[in-house]
Amino acid sequence: MRPFTYQRANSPAEAAAAVARTPGAKFIAGGTNLLDLMKLEVETPQHLVDVNHLGLDQVQPTPERGLRIGALVRNTDLAADARVRRDYGVLSRALLSGASGQLRNKATTAGNLLQRTRCPYFYDVTKPCNKRTPGSGCAAIEGVSRDLAVLGGSEACIATYPSDMAVAMRALDATIETVDGAGAVRTIPIAELHRLPGDMPEVDTTLRSGEMITAVTLPPPIVGRHVYRKVRDRASYAFALVSIAAVLGDGHRRVAFGGLAPKPWRVEAAEAHRTAQEIADVALAGARPTRQNAFKLTLARRTLAAVVEA
């Protein structure tokens, strides 16, 4: 871990300003992914701004009958929130399928959104990786790629995005609220938060330098059956091979996939179709699997059938 200086911030704007003006600065909240990566020197911040004491830990109703989730609400608390359990079951389920009890107690809403890929080559500093070291090449495309992306990848990177929570939020059309170093506030639809790698895989999101997530807003509840189905290599405490967040109502349905792409994968045009097969045909169109991960497409189709036709 590279040496860094540390400060506790007292307000979101102060935190954002500190990160914006300090070279190599990063926010730290739960720390469960950042410290993991800092120990390996995949992440090497020179300055950490601790945002754990800013409040931002409440789940509150919005005037639009939705919910506003503070950036620092812990994953456990968000999953356990009575309103989330009742009205946004898919989100509660997604959170509970991720990580472990200990990690969910620490991990925050904003931090979960900003998780970095678990591609093994990204984690190993002795290997080329365009996401970690731009221009160094991608060891994964011709390498061990079983867990990696079948959709949305590029010649430079086929990393998958690991969050479960975000897949549910994508199905729910959540909105991200941010503040920047100048105190300016903006909102970003979750569909536009994460970006595809293209030729700049080192940039995971559309956030600007120093911009800090302050909240995630959920629109009013969507009536229907809320399902989060996660398929993985062991029964718990593992990342998804494929996951599906779905809200299935009378005459409307929403389906988002995890584990397949560099971002939560949702194709709204697919949702008008009736059968799982038709939905999958549209949602998974354009897939470019490797020999090792082509099974994910079969798995996604079969899992979708289990979710939709149950």
């Binding site: 540390y6 730290i28 739960g30 720390g31 469960t32 410290l35 993991d36 120990k39 950490l48 601790d50 754990n52 456990t76 472990s100 009890g101 200990q102 990690l103 107690n105 620490k106």
Partner: peptide, 27 residues
């Protein structure tokens, strides 16, 4: 494991269980 992958470092902070390997003492 020192990376939040095994749970051997679990302690209770403010009564909640966490992985003590993935948090800084200064926090």
């Amino acid at each position: 494991c020192d990376h939040g992958q095994c749970g051997a470092c679990t302690v209770l902070v403010g009564g909640r269980r966490i992985n003590s390997c993935l948090t800084l003492a200064v926090m």
